[in-house]
Simulated scan of single mutants.
Amino acid sequence: MQAGNLKDRATLYSARTEGAQPAWPIIGSLWAGFQEPKSVGRGEQTGIRAADSTYVQMRYRPSMQQGQLLRRQGMWYVVESVEPGYNRSELAVSARRIIGSTAQYRQRGAVETTEVLAFITRENIYTGPMSEPRMQIELFQPQLPYPWGRRGDTIALFGGTFTVDGVVEGSDNGVTLKVLVTS
Protein backbone atom coordinates (compact mmCIF):
# COMPACT_ATOMS: atom_id res chain seq x y z
CA MET A 1 0.00 0.00 0.00
CA GLN A 2 1.31 3.43 -0.90
CA ALA A 3 0.73 6.13 1.71
CA GLY A 4 0.15 8.66 -1.09
CA ASN A 5 -3.10 6.86 -1.98
CA LEU A 6 -4.49 7.62 1.49
CA LYS A 7 -5.15 11.31 0.87
CA ASP A 8 -8.61 11.70 2.43
CA ARG A 9 -9.09 12.41 6.13
CA ALA A 10 -12.19 10.65 7.45
CA THR A 11 -13.95 10.17 10.77
CA LEU A 12 -15.00 6.67 11.82
CA TYR A 13 -18.21 6.25 13.82
CA SER A 14 -19.37 3.16 15.68
CA ALA A 15 -22.47 1.28 14.60
CA ARG A 16 -25.57 2.45 16.48
CA THR A 17 -25.51 1.80 20.21
CA GLU A 18 -28.72 0.96 22.01
CA GLY A 19 -29.78 2.46 25.30
CA ALA A 20 -31.88 5.30 26.60
CA GLN A 21 -30.89 7.32 23.54
CA PRO A 22 -29.35 5.64 20.46
CA ALA A 23 -25.97 7.09 19.45
CA TRP A 24 -23.16 6.66 16.93
CA PRO A 25 -20.01 7.43 18.97
CA ILE A 26 -16.87 8.65 17.21
CA ILE A 27 -14.16 5.98 17.18
CA GLY A 28 -11.43 8.16 15.69
CA SER A 29 -9.94 9.74 12.59
CA LEU A 30 -8.08 7.95 9.83
CA TRP A 31 -6.46 8.46 6.46
CA ALA A 32 -8.10 6.63 3.57
CA GLY A 33 -8.35 6.55 -0.20
CA PHE A 34 -11.91 6.77 -1.59
CA GLN A 35 -12.71 5.58 -5.11
CA GLU A 36 -16.26 6.51 -6.06
CA PRO A 37 -18.03 4.19 -8.53
CA LYS A 38 -18.03 5.14 -12.20
CA SER A 39 -21.28 6.45 -13.67
CA VAL A 40 -21.36 3.92 -16.53
CA GLY A 41 -24.00 1.26 -15.87
CA ARG A 42 -25.06 2.80 -12.57
CA GLY A 43 -28.43 1.58 -11.36
CA GLU A 44 -31.35 3.84 -10.57
CA GLN A 45 -31.45 5.07 -7.00
CA THR A 46 -34.36 3.65 -5.00
CA GLY A 47 -33.39 4.82 -1.52
CA ILE A 48 -31.12 7.08 0.45
CA ARG A 49 -28.12 4.82 -0.14
CA ALA A 50 -26.21 5.15 -3.41
CA ALA A 51 -26.89 2.49 -6.04
CA ASP A 52 -23.23 1.38 -6.21
CA SER A 53 -20.53 0.87 -3.60
CA THR A 54 -17.52 3.07 -2.99
CA TYR A 55 -14.14 1.37 -2.59
CA VAL A 56 -12.20 2.62 0.45
CA GLN A 57 -8.57 1.68 1.10
CA MET A 58 -7.04 2.24 4.55
CA ARG A 59 -4.46 0.95 6.98
CA TYR A 60 -5.41 -2.16 8.95
CA ARG A 61 -7.73 -1.50 11.91
CA PRO A 62 -8.81 -4.54 13.94
CA SER A 63 -11.95 -2.69 15.13
CA MET A 64 -13.24 -1.96 11.59
CA GLN A 65 -16.52 -3.77 10.89
CA GLN A 66 -19.73 -3.78 8.89
CA GLY A 67 -22.37 -1.25 9.98
CA GLN A 68 -19.96 1.45 11.05
CA LEU A 69 -20.13 4.91 9.47
CA LEU A 70 -17.45 6.97 7.74
CA ARG A 71 -17.68 10.73 7.21
CA ARG A 72 -15.47 12.51 4.71
CA GLN A 73 -15.82 16.17 3.71
CA GLY A 74 -19.48 16.26 4.80
CA MET A 75 -20.34 13.00 2.97
CA TRP A 76 -21.52 9.94 4.90
CA TYR A 77 -20.82 6.29 4.07
CA VAL A 78 -22.15 3.04 5.58
CA VAL A 79 -19.54 0.26 5.75
CA GLU A 80 -20.87 -2.85 3.96
CA SER A 81 -17.87 -5.18 4.03
CA VAL A 82 -14.31 -5.22 5.33
CA GLU A 83 -11.66 -7.44 3.74
CA PRO A 84 -7.93 -7.67 4.41
CA GLY A 85 -5.83 -6.24 1.60
CA TYR A 86 -2.88 -7.92 -0.10
CA ASN A 87 -1.06 -7.96 3.20
CA ARG A 88 -2.06 -7.51 6.85
CA SER A 89 -1.19 -3.82 6.81
CA GLU A 90 -4.22 -2.69 4.79
CA LEU A 91 -8.00 -3.05 4.50
CA ALA A 92 -10.28 -3.00 1.48
CA VAL A 93 -13.66 -1.60 2.53
CA SER A 94 -16.86 -1.49 0.51
CA ALA A 95 -19.17 1.33 1.60
CA ARG A 96 -22.43 2.89 0.38
CA ARG A 97 -22.63 6.65 0.22
CA ILE A 98 -25.69 8.31 1.72
CA ILE A 99 -27.20 10.26 -1.16
CA GLY A 100 -30.11 12.35 -0.03
CA SER A 101 -31.47 15.83 -0.34
CA THR A 102 -31.05 18.26 2.52
CA ALA A 103 -34.28 18.60 4.48
CA GLN A 104 -35.30 20.40 7.66
CA TYR A 105 -36.70 18.13 10.39
CA ARG A 106 -38.71 19.62 13.24
CA GLN A 107 -40.02 17.66 16.18
CA ARG A 108 -43.64 18.29 17.17
CA GLY A 109 -43.80 21.35 19.42
CA ALA A 110 -40.12 22.29 18.89
CA VAL A 111 -38.91 25.66 17.64
CA GLU A 112 -35.55 24.52 16.26
CA THR A 113 -35.12 22.55 13.05
CA THR A 114 -32.41 20.00 12.33
CA GLU A 115 -30.76 19.53 8.94
CA VAL A 116 -31.07 15.91 7.81
CA LEU A 117 -30.53 13.93 4.60
CA ALA A 118 -33.82 12.67 3.19
CA PHE A 119 -35.06 10.77 0.13
CA ILE A 120 -38.64 10.29 -1.09
CA THR A 121 -38.86 6.52 -1.67
CA ARG A 122 -42.54 6.13 -2.61
CA GLU A 123 -45.36 8.47 -3.55
CA ASN A 124 -49.14 8.07 -3.51
CA ILE A 125 -49.53 5.22 -1.06
CA TYR A 126 -53.21 5.02 -0.19
CA THR A 127 -53.69 4.01 3.41
CA GLY A 128 -55.75 4.78 6.48
CA PRO A 129 -59.51 4.60 7.09
CA MET A 130 -60.27 6.99 4.23
CA SER A 131 -57.51 5.78 1.86
CA GLU A 132 -55.71 9.10 2.11
CA PRO A 133 -52.56 9.49 -0.03
CA ARG A 134 -49.25 9.18 1.78
CA MET A 135 -45.60 9.27 0.81
CA GLN A 136 -42.61 7.46 2.26
CA ILE A 137 -39.54 9.48 3.13
CA GLU A 138 -36.31 7.78 4.16
CA LEU A 139 -34.22 9.71 6.71
CA PHE A 140 -30.59 9.37 7.82
CA GLN A 141 -30.86 8.56 11.55
CA PRO A 142 -27.52 9.88 12.91
CA GLN A 143 -28.67 13.40 12.01
CA LEU A 144 -32.15 13.06 13.54
CA PRO A 145 -33.00 14.36 17.01
CA TYR A 146 -34.22 11.59 19.31
CA PRO A 147 -37.02 10.50 19.69
CA TRP A 148 -37.58 10.43 15.94
CA GLY A 149 -40.45 9.61 13.62
CA ARG A 150 -43.24 10.70 15.96
CA ARG A 151 -46.66 11.61 14.62
CA GLY A 152 -46.81 15.37 14.10
CA ASP A 153 -43.09 15.92 13.40
CA THR A 154 -42.53 17.84 10.15
CA ILE A 155 -40.08 17.55 7.27
CA ALA A 156 -39.45 20.48 4.91
CA LEU A 157 -38.20 19.08 1.60
CA PHE A 158 -38.26 20.41 -1.99
CA GLY A 159 -40.23 23.50 -1.00
CA GLY A 160 -43.01 21.52 0.68
CA THR A 161 -43.73 20.64 4.28
CA PHE A 162 -44.72 17.09 5.15
CA THR A 163 -46.19 15.88 8.44
CA VAL A 164 -45.07 12.54 9.84
CA ASP A 165 -47.98 10.15 10.24
CA GLY A 166 -45.95 7.18 11.48
CA VAL A 167 -42.88 5.00 11.04
CA VAL A 168 -42.91 2.26 8.39
CA GLU A 169 -42.79 -1.01 10.30
CA GLY A 170 -39.45 -2.79 10.05
CA SER A 171 -37.69 0.15 8.37
CA ASP A 172 -35.39 1.08 11.29
CA ASN A 173 -32.11 -0.60 10.31
CA GLY A 174 -29.82 1.39 12.61
CA VAL A 175 -28.80 3.84 9.88
CA THR A 176 -31.99 4.93 8.12
CA LEU A 177 -35.65 5.23 9.00
CA LYS A 178 -38.68 5.36 6.70
CA VAL A 179 -41.68 7.42 7.71
CA LEU A 180 -45.14 7.83 6.20
CA VAL A 181 -46.02 11.48 5.64
CA THR A 182 -48.92 13.61 4.47
CA SER A 183 -48.55 16.93 2.71
Score class of each variant (00 low, 15 high):
residue 130 M to S: 08
residue 141 Q to T: 06
residue 164 V to C: 08
residue 66 Q to D: 11
residue 145 P to A: 02
residue 64 M to A: 12
residue 140 F to Q: 04
residue 147 P to D: 01
residue 137 I to R: 00
residue 107 Q to V: 08
residue 165 D to H: 14
residue 75 M to G: 02
residue 71 R to Q: 14
residue 18 E to W: 11
residue 15 A to C: 11
residue 167 V to R: 07
residue 21 Q to D: 05
residue 171 S to I: 01
residue 3 A to K: 13
residue 32 A to D: 04
residue 137 I to S: 00
residue 110 A to S: 08
residue 18 E to P: 11
residue 154 T to C: 07
residue 64 M to C: 12
residue 157 L to S: 00
residue 139 L to M: 05
residue 80 E to M: 08
residue 117 L to W: 14
residue 171 S to F: 02
residue 5 N to Q: 15
residue 133 P to A: 02
residue 6 L to F: 04
residue 51 A to K: 00
residue 164 V to P: 03
residue 39 S to D: 09
residue 84 P to R: 06
residue 156 A to C: 10
residue 8 D to H: 15
residue 180 L to K: 03
residue 95 A to R: 03
residue 91 L to H: 11
residue 12 L to T: 14
residue 142 P to V: 03
residue 60 Y to A: 13
residue 132 E to Y: 11
residue 20 A to C: 11
residue 63 S to P: 13
residue 75 M to D: 14
residue 58 M to Q: 10
residue 182 T to R: 10
residue 67 G to C: 03
residue 19 G to R: 11
residue 72 R to E: 10
residue 2 Q to W: 15
residue 13 Y to S: 09
residue 51 A to Y: 02
residue 79 V to G: 06
residue 69 L to P: 12
residue 93 V to M: 07
residue 92 A to D: 15
residue 144 L to E: 10
residue 119 F to M: 00
residue 80 E to R: 15
residue 174 G to K: 12
residue 152 G to D: 14
residue 38 K to N: 08
residue 47 G to Y: 00
residue 161 T to L: 05
residue 131 S to E: 07
residue 91 L to E: 06
residue 128 G to E: 01
residue 84 P to Y: 15
residue 93 V to D: 00
residue 2 Q to R: 13
residue 9 R to W: 08
residue 147 P to S: 03
residue 143 Q to V: 00
residue 144 L to K: 02
residue 43 G to M: 13
residue 57 Q to N: 12
residue 76 W to L: 08
residue 39 S to A: 08
residue 3 A to D: 06
residue 21 Q to I: 15
residue 157 L to Q: 03
residue 134 R to W: 02
residue 45 Q to D: 09
residue 90 E to Q: 12
residue 7 K to Q: 13
residue 95 A to G: 04
residue 101 S to I: 10
residue 117 L to Q: 13
residue 22 P to C: 05
residue 34 F to H: 04
residue 160 G to C: 04
residue 49 R to I: 06
residue 72 R to S: 06
residue 168 V to W: 02
residue 137 I to L: 03
residue 100 G to R: 06
residue 17 T to F: 04
residue 91 L to N: 11
residue 163 T to P: 09
residue 15 A to S: 15
residue 170 G to L: 12
residue 110 A to L: 03
residue 119 F to Q: 00
residue 92 A to I: 14
residue 40 V to P: 03
residue 106 R to N: 10
residue 49 R to W: 09
residue 28 G to N: 07
residue 32 A to Q: 08
residue 152 G to N: 06
residue 115 E to Y: 11
residue 103 A to V: 11
residue 14 S to E: 15
residue 113 T to Y: 09
residue 3 A to E: 06
residue 163 T to A: 14
residue 26 I to K: 08
residue 173 N to R: 04
residue 133 P to H: 01
residue 85 G to K: 07
residue 21 Q to Y: 07
residue 153 D to G: 02
residue 183 S to I: 09
residue 155 I to W: 02
residue 46 T to V: 06
residue 71 R to T: 03
residue 82 V to H: 13
residue 28 G to L: 05
residue 58 M to E: 06
residue 122 R to V: 08
residue 79 V to R: 05
residue 179 V to M: 09
residue 163 T to L: 04
residue 105 Y to H: 10
residue 139 L to C: 01
residue 10 A to T: 12
residue 68 Q to A: 05
residue 1 M to S: 10
residue 43 G to W: 09
residue 26 I to C: 13
